[in-house]
Amino acid sequence: MSDEIATMPMPGTDRRFTGLALLAAAALGASVPLWTENMPFVLILASQAVVAAIVALSLDLLMGSTGLLSFGHAAWYGFGAYLTGIAAKMLTADVVVLLPLTVVLTIVLSAIVGFVLVRQIGKTFAILTLAFGQILFALVFVLSSITGGEDGLQGIPIPTAFGFQIVKPAVWYWLLYGVLLVALAGAFHIRRSPLGKAWLAIRENTERARFIGLNVSLLKLLSYIVSASLAALAGGLFALFNGAASPDLLNWFESGKVLMYVVLGGVGTIIGPVIGAAVFTVTEHYVSSITDSWLIYFGGFFVLIVIVAPGGLFGAVSNLWQRIAAARRGMSA
């Protein structure tokens, strides 16, 4: 069979192979709690990586589809975290209520902010997203009676679902991982749908898109709202998982990290940013346990990547892979 695959490059073979590889990767990801029973710390790190992956995916839904570059994406992540945390303390600890509430409120706020933002040209958009991030960061301190200010939001109750408390790390991991898989499936589905194609058209040639009758502002706004909502959902999950939220979540360093996941993984590849986030989160953990000056390495690496591999590391690798595959196909044909 393997010979047949190598020598007969049928259309669909590549796709089937990719599908199998993805399935294997998904299964491997799901199995993490099974082999980390004696390493609770690794499981927590893995959970954090999954949250980071969801945030990265959310940013790629904006950058990779309509080409809008957000330098303040942590704003939505942090917004979701605080909103969910505060609601959990004041209203209910039931995630079935909390998370939809967070998403709905994010949709409302991001629609208002996005209405102005998406009408700006690229640079103004980038600047305003950074400013918006700083504004929400400042808001945490203005409302310190509710948010806990500098100390962060403490004492978020243990969330419940259908009457059961969500406590076990493994359950948490699977919950987060499930959300990631659903979000990924959704992202791939949208990419192939008319909406996803219309987004890509805007990223590629906004002028032409307008002249085939696409409502560019509305389509950009939609991608902004989808992106913000998913980031807020990730933030909400993180706050409940972590039991606390800190103002650092809204810092521009955090936005920089999310941006890095996407750039590292390759803008618009959907799966790349997810892998980028996971690799980056784990690396950050180990590097920052060795040295205090994590930010120096991070910033330096960021600069280096932009200069050397603007398509992202995974982009570069997959390019190489495709070229090798094409060469092999060329030789066997």
Partner: peptide
Amino acid sequence: DRPMVDSLLLTFGLALLITGVLYE
């Protein structure tokens, strides 16, 4: 001569780098 996106990302990374050095 790269697209605008790269210059934004680059100066952003540079900001992180300088800030990191100042922290130290």
